[in-house]
Amino acid sequence: MSFSGSYREGEVEFLLTPLPLQDFVDVADKEYLIQSGQRHYSEMLSPEVLPSQRYLDVFRQACAANNDRMARDCLTLAALIAARRDGAITVVSLARAGTPVGVVLTRLLNGVLERQAHHYSVSIIRDRGIDSNALAYILAQGHAAASLVFVDGWTGKGVIAAELRSTIATFNASHGTAIDGGLYVLSDLAGTAACAASCDDYLIPSSILNATVSGLVSRSILNASIGPGQFHGCVVYQQFAAHDQSQAFADAIVAAAEAQLSAGEGMQAAPSDQARAAAVSRAYMQAALRQHGIDDVNLVKPGIGEATRVLLRRTPRLLIVRDGGARDVAHLLLLAQEKQVPMLVDGALPYHAVSLIRSALDA
């Protein structure tokens, strides 16, 4: 089964299995189960809540400040994709942070670059891999393996980029295909993507919200309720429909991109400095583990996008920002205030923000 969520028909096909609103797990309980090894994070979901009015105001401010930057990077990434694919293009976004980006890229490929493009959004889960049933479904629809392009919003430490490469290699070996397992992103902080518009840590506005900017779809789920032949699962938050920003946000980014082209700005496809980004990422992670006495690399989340995810749906231990007055971290300061999370300002931080997850195993 495929569905379009709250997007217009044809803008995306979510290859996910909608599950009933049940069996939610409290955030603290979920954290303990994950960190103790009793449950994998993909088996559980904590309920989402609508953002406060103050937080929505910060989202709107982020859109006003950074929609143009995101639109420019979407134009750049669309041009890079078009240059690397012949014929029709199959955009495969990684649900759910990749979904808004995939919607915009597909519209730019079709409408601006005049390339035939179709968009699917599929699940990929750390340590579990990409949804092979979804990949098989895409190929069964007649899309050539060489046409697939995997899209996400950003890289943090590069875990998902590595997961994608590994599981696509396994899929190719078992299915006799030659799908490119490289990841295409707007911002490649880890220097691990196959292709990126930039390596800058900036506030991608869609990273601020959860389901209400991603088609009303939850993070993907893979537990006992998913049968062998089914797509990975999700919850559809239809009750949030009146508050949904998904379609309006995508429309705004596309409009900004078209305005830039009309103004003669054109598409910039200069290569980003991924080697430097990778070196910075490795050095920072090693230093952060030592400085904060952390053994588990999964408890350190670098970059604005990852830091936001921690404050929205994990149990944060500490928020670190490079500049407490920077516009791009205003939403993080608000979340930290609302959740009473300590904050540290570190002027030497190579990113705008980093969040540390509290160890649920500490006494």
Rank of each mutant, 00 (worst) to 15 (best):
S174Q: 08
A161M: 11
A250S: 15
V280M: 09
P316C: 02
V149T: 12
G158R: 04
V92M: 07
S198G: 06
S359R: 10
V354L: 03
D328P: 00
Y137N: 06
L334M: 11
E43R: 04
H243Q: 14
G325E: 15
A194N: 08
E31P: 00
V345Y: 05
G264W: 02
A256Y: 04
L333Y: 01
I81V: 15
G303H: 10
Y7F: 11
T106Y: 07
V101A: 03
Q260V: 02
V92K: 03
S207H: 10
D328F: 00
G176R: 06
Q268E: 14
D188Y: 00
F59G: 00
D328Q: 09
G305I: 05
A250H: 06
R60T: 01
T155H: 07
G182Y: 01
I160E: 05
G142W: 11
V92T: 10
V213E: 11
R54P: 01
A169L: 04
T177Y: 11
V300Y: 02
N133D: 07
G264N: 08
F240P: 09
H40E: 06
S36A: 10
R219Y: 12
S214E: 04
L139N: 06
A79P: 00
Q274T: 14
G215R: 04
S123C: 12
V103D: 05
L311S: 06
V341G: 12
E163Y: 03
A278I: 02
Q337L: 09
A88T: 10
K157A: 01
I179N: 05
G303W: 03
I34L: 04
R309L: 15
D57Y: 00
R282P: 00
